[in-house]
Design a protein around this nucleic acid. Structure first.
Lengths: 202, 202
DNA sequence: CACATTATGTATCGCTCGTTATGAAAGCCG
DNA sequence: CGGCTTTCATAACGAGCGATACATAATGTG
């Protein structure tokens, strides 16, 4: 049980797992879980099938690791947005952060979470459940933030906070749908401007 | 060439094509184009594979016919909404119509168009293109309606009509994502109330 | 150097997919 | 009844899927 921690025995691997995982993330991001075949993945990652299975388990395990990477590196704008001083600033940071995430150059358009929660087949059911679970925690955090804003008088008293959160989530998810559908960045910026224009204030 | 129009020669078919198509629509609606297998479809339609191919061509052709049926019977709320007298009434009719469509009892939750435009694989590319095309025409119609509303002083002069249309579309698409993700009807109603509360007025 | 250990490349597994060939069954017409 | 036409059910096709068995190659250890 007490294994030497510094010795790497056996033949060393010839690829970087982090870089390979990043490539896999791009494939899942653009094609979805079921739409990404093992051939797509291995070709993008530059490794053979057995290497992939040895390093990442199976397809589902690889997807979860890619989802972790996605949350850590691409969805960090969400937690930073919650630190904005006003509810309006939180909403603006979320909308603009989502735009950058969904329309980044050299990255697939759209949102991996939305793609994975919409698609489809039977094998992806546990994947879907996990993605939905992660989305729920994000929504809870946003509700808590807006509750605080309401207590601070930052949101009008007559506003339903949970309704407002679901409303803002819907705009972001709708943006993801449109980004994946090929809508231009300029159009999404106008969408955001409109959202901010109608944002409830005192 | 001049065939008798009233004589049905040969063995009569033992199923109703319209009912079978309606069943197929429900399968596509809940599982998406690629998520729906021919086994799923034939079982739901109550017919065998060769009967399906003889009556509807192939899977893609069946999907297009189902999409036609969906637009005709489930998306009719869109064209009726455009007849509302004010821009706000149009928006409200669209939102409430979308809710009824996406959360109808005994029907799959979500929107077939959103599901089909998000998913995924390579074989569905031509399907995706067709769905996006139909969505564009709906968006154009809504833009034209809001242009008229703006000319009638029904929408504030400072509002960007195309931005407003994309914004409203995003809310509806986001609602579809949430409906497919299992959000309750009550939550979507609160989402709609919030959307109507912030709708721009003079 | 021989050994244990780990990674690699090839080739293949069983399975499901969409699609179709085949022949029997059921209805009209003469 | 015998020909003609269309639909039915069974069974199978080739292709692609995710996942692996196997032998080989490359490292550290005794």
């Amino acid at each position: 049980m007490k294994a030497d921690v510094c010795t790497a025995r056996g033949r060393p691997r010839e690829f970087c797992p982090d870089a390979a995982l990043a490539s896999a993330l791009r494939v899942f991001w653009s094609k979805g879980y079921e739409g990404a075949s093992m051939t797509d993945l291995t070709e993008a990652m530059g490794i053979t099938r057995p290497s992939l299975y040895a390093a990442f388990g199976n397809k589902e395990s690889l997807f979860r690791k890619a989802l972790d990477l996605y949350e850590r590196e691409k969805l960090d704008y969400i937690s930073t947005a919650l630190d904005e001083p006003t509810a309006r600033a939180v909403a603006e940071a979320l909308l603009r952060g989502a735009l950058e995430n969904q329309m980044a150059q050299d990255e697939p358009h759209g949102c991996l979470g939305v793609i994975s929660s919409v698609a489809c087949g039977a094998e992806a059911e546990s994947i879907r459940a996990e993605v939905l679970e992660r989305g729920k925690t994000a929504k809870s955090a946003l509700i808590a933030r807006f509750e605080r804003a309401k207590a601070e008088g930052d949101i009008p008293a007559h506003v339903d906070v949970e309704g407002l959160t679901g409303y803002l989530f819907a705009i972001i998810q709708g943006m993801a749908v449109q980004a994946g559908a090929g809508v231009s960045r300029e159009d999404l910026e106008r969408l955001i401007e409109t959202s901010l224009m109608v944002w409830p204030s005192n």
